[in-house]
């Protein structure tokens, strides 16, 4: 084919393209936007707009029925002097820190279960079982476990000579008691994440490590763990978010009690805005905004790290 002919056909193609309808010309550019549109619209209506609406409501005094009254930052100043808010905040910190124990615990169980013996699938599913049952059921099981008169836990502490400890009625232990209940399914979740991660550990590297005389802890720390980094990252994200939105267990096991000592921010928000004696929408919204800011702090951190690792990788 001569060059002249080639350029002629190129011009022809060009002309052809110009004569094509708008859709055909821009299909490639528009397609992704169109595919994203339904999801983005949902996200806008159900996530983004409510966030701004909550921030807006937090400047008002409103019971959800009558007129809204603008009170500026009063809800926030009241929050600063509210002992219940600090209790909730402190409990949230406890949840965050202690919930992270689910990660090493999940890793240990995953390594323990990552072997080939008869019936290992059964054992794995048994360990995974608490994650499958609903949080409500987990809460109920643990409430009965802790129940002062009929529960197993007070019997155990009694046998150990500590007296019958009623965890859920005791302001000193109640939050730890609920976190323990929350850890049960969370450990199972982390375990599953690590089990899938362990499947992808390259046998060559393990073999190479063996040749270099790595064993036990050193093998775990220098060879296995670095390969599990993606799993650790996900486990971290779901655990932190899980800790921050710990609501169901508190609601089922104690209703925030005794005398409000086991509240967390999400529960306090619900209590103020929506529960039987609440309906202070503005104050509830102000708590929600604070919780949102804390979550943003963590989520931005995670996304930041994700972007960096993706650039490096």
């Amino acid at each position: 084919m001569s060059t002249a002919a080639a350029s002629a056909s190129a011009t022809a193609a060009n002309l052809e393209q110009r004569r094509m309808p708008f859709w055909k010309r821009n299909q490639r550019r528009l397609a992704p936007a169109l595919f994203l549109a339904p999801g983005a619209l949902m996200f806008l209506v159900y996530v983004i707009l409510p966030i701004f609406e909550s921030i807006w409501i937090s400047f008002y005094q409103w019971d959800g029925l009558s007129e809204m009254t603008w009170i500026g930052l009063s809800n926030y100043t009241e929050l600063l002097g509210d002992p219940a808010f600090y209790t909730s905040l402190w409990n949230n910190v406890l949840w965050l820190v202690l919930y992270l124990l689910a990660i090493p615990a999940g890793l240990m169980i995953a390594i323990f279960l990552n072997q080939n013996v008869i019936g290992i699938r059964v054992y794995k599913s048994l360990f995974f079982f608490p994650f499958v049952i609903s949080q409500v059921v987990v809460g109920l099981i643990f409430s009965w476990f802790y129940a002062p008169n009929i529960g197993l836990f007070p019997q155990i502490t009694d046998a150990l000579g500590l007296g019958k400890i009623a965890v859920l009625a005791d302001a000193r232990f109640v939050t730890y008691g609920i976190i323990a209940a929350g850890l049960w399914p969370q450990i199972a979740y982390c375990m599953i994440l690590y089990l899938t991660g362990l499947n992808n550990v390259s046998p060559e590297q393990v073999e190479a490590g063996r040749l270099d005389n790595a064993k036990g802890w050193r093998m775990l720390w220098y060879v296995i763990l670095p390969q599990l980094r993606p799993a650790t990252f996900i486990a971290m994200v779901v655990t932190v978010i899980g800790a921050l939105r710990s609501f169901d267990l508190v609601s089922i096991m104690t209703d925030g009690g005794p005398y409000g000592t086991s509240r967390v921010l999400s529960f306090y928000m619900y209590e103020q805005a929506l529960s039987e004696y609440g309906y202070r929408m503005g104050y509830g919204a102000a708590i929600a905004v604070v919780l949102f800011l804390i979550m943003m702090l963590f989520i931005t951190g995670f996304i930041w790290r994700m972007v960096i690792t993706e650039r490096e990788g």
Partner: peptide
Amino acid sequence: YDRDAPAQMAKAGMEGFQQFMAQ
């Protein structure tokens, strides 16, 4: 109490009573 007093007062009050019975 929770019908004679407004809801928010009732909630705080009853929580106080519960605490008093423990402490």
